[in-house]
Design a protein around this nucleic acid. Structure first.
Lengths: 334, 334
DNA sequence: CTGTTGGCATACATCGTTGCAGATCAGGCC
DNA sequence: GGCCTGATCTGCAACGATGTATGCCAACAG
């Protein structure tokens, strides 16, 4: 039913392969022939069947992207950047939502899904490095966001530790001494939660402020997690003059809860987050946070992955570039 | 290099076609044979090459989704729902960002991209019905969100008019009489902007409140558009006691600007939006808005599209189901 | 006139599957 | 025994493109 190269060839009066050559910009084609083919393509409305091309060439020109859920703003914004970066290089992106479940993450790493892509960008949340290495096939894989960090894997690093320290230092500079942390448990040292918590502790130590585990509250990295944790903190009677949400969703949830409880932000309690999602600028008060270099992360990750794809053999050396971060000071913690 | 059915067949000691039959759950296979094949698949780590299957079968089991940008929360949340609905039916979703540009929208409708999908979900922003019909190929197409509405096209309808009227009525019931509208120009009657504006006017008329064009401010449907428009409104000296953002981003932008300017919300000025994005619940004050039935829209659209795909010939009748809406009353306009 | 070169076009095999049309074989029935 | 039925398995030809090898012809050198 669809128009094929064969049809075009017949109309143009050339062989099928010549049509293929025209489409692929083969050098040695007489201009007149080329024009005849192009006219035929136009006339018939021919479009190359990418499926067939993929089968023959072994490349799909698609990248897989595995993340928890697009309804989470940080991932959505990152996905948007990634798609633009990939597009600019002639690749499309096939998104797979893992829902943060190990089962789905593993399925995405192994599953048939992989046969549709030339390589995979993966934001691991539930699996650890060992499991990822076990599950991953031989196709190129680049990790993002480093809940996981491992010398055997390509990844683009967020400077969790230093960025978190920078935010904490900013809060300390504002005179805050009792800074609550939302989204980690006392003792976490790995993953984004652990690294950010460590950054926080390092900043405290630098400033000579004591670390109080009572100020550290674990919860889901979502708005309602942040709100709940803040409520618990307030109810517990622990004193604090600032809240550091380990991501913006947590901070925004905290902000909401504080305002509901009649606390003045930032006068009584300052609030800071991590990620600089769009929403942070428009919260009331606007949210102080740290931008982890999202666009740069997307760009680097896509670039790294495509390099791996297009030169499979070369450079077996693992790469782990770091993105630059920047503290964005706004009203919630001036 | 990759393991193929042929390899599996050799190991299992059966024909290639039998392997295929096992994979496709062909009925008449001796259990022992089936087991032998499954064992071989396991042993070799065979995975079906979906590209080859697509070529042979003519189906890709992928749906295209064209929207402006995933960094816009409403689209991201809708995309997430659509992907889940599609997944549940054995389809994947290939997202294409149009950036709200006619050129990109047209490319997405026609381009080679379509050869990778069995059908398309399309949220048109820049093209009108005529252009869409011209550009679209013969593959199934379902429109969402109806900036465009046309009897020749399948689509899932948002009840723009009635939902906007309901929100307006809610504001009126709260005693507001000077309700500013952000995101439409006086006189708009088509598209989401026009339909929502008409709903607003209808509600005013019902309540016997005069319509004042000075209260209607056009702008980009984004947070900063809403903030700017609100600033202009305040500066212009026009009196108003409520703001109705034609989507939540506008309303949140307005909310932000009002608070920055020291206005009390909702005491002095009430704010309401449209979409019920996640963020609305966690704004401070939380945002009154109308939920257009996002999950239902996603579900219906995917269902409709897949029905079209799987029975191309049947039911040439255009379908345009309507999703149920619901006003969500929160603090910004109690 | 023959041999070589280079531009241009073609034929054929092939990528990994699935649809179609048998082939084979055991069991049941007359 | 011959024939039919239905379960089980197989071979061949596609799907629509591209890589490789090669053919053909004009131009040009010897």
């Amino acid at each position: 039913m669809a128009v094929t190269m064969n049809d075009v060839a017949r109309v143009a009066g050339v062989s099928l392969k010549t049509v293929s050559n025209v489409i692929n910009n083969y050098e040695f084609i007489r201009p007149t022939t080329k024009q005849r083919v192009l006219d035929a393509i136009d006339e018939l409305g021919y479009e190359t069947n990418l499926t067939a091309r993929s089968l023959r060439s072994g490349k799909t020109s698609m990248l897989g992207l595995v993340l928890a859920d697009l309804s989470i703003p940080y991932y959505a914004e990152l996905a948007s950047d990634i798609m633009k970066a990939a597009w600019a290089r002639g690749y499309r992106v096939l998104v797979e939502q893992s829902g943060n479940e190990p089962y789905h993450e593993k399925a995405a790493l192994q599953g048939q899904f992989r046969t549709l892509t030339d390589g995979l960008l993966f934001i691991p949340l539930a699996l650890d490095a060992e499991q990822i290495i076990d599950a991953a096939g031989k196709k190129p894989l680049v990790l993002l966001g480093e809940f996981v960090q491992d010398p055997r894997l390509d990844m683009v690093l967020i400077q969790n530790h230093r960025a978190a320290a920078a935010v904490t230092t900013h809060l300390l500079a504002g005179g805050r001494r009792r800074i609550a942390v939302l989204g980690a448990h006392d003792g976490d040292t790995t993953g984004s939660n652990g690294l950010r918590l460590e950054g926080y502790r390092a900043a405290l130590a630098d400033a000579g402020v004591a670390y109080d585990p009572a100020l550290v509250v674990g919860c889901d990295w979502r708005r309602d997690g942040g709100a709940d944790a803040t409520a618990r903190l307030l109810d517990s009677g622990v004193e604090f003059d600032a809240v550091f949400g380990l991501n913006d969703a947590l901070a925004l949830g905290a902000l909401h809860e504080l305002l509901v409880r009649g606390k003045k932000v930032p006068e009584e309690i300052a609030v800071a987050g991590f990620d600089d999602i769009d929403e942070a600028r428009f919260a009331s008060p606007s949210l102080t946070t740290v931008a982890p270099g999202r666009a740069e992360i997307a760009e680097r990750a896509v670039e790294l992955l495509i390099n791996r794809i297009e030169s499979m053999d070369a450079s077996p050396q693992v790469q782990q570039p770091e993105a630059a971060f920047e503290v964005r000071v706004r009203q919630s913690a001036p």
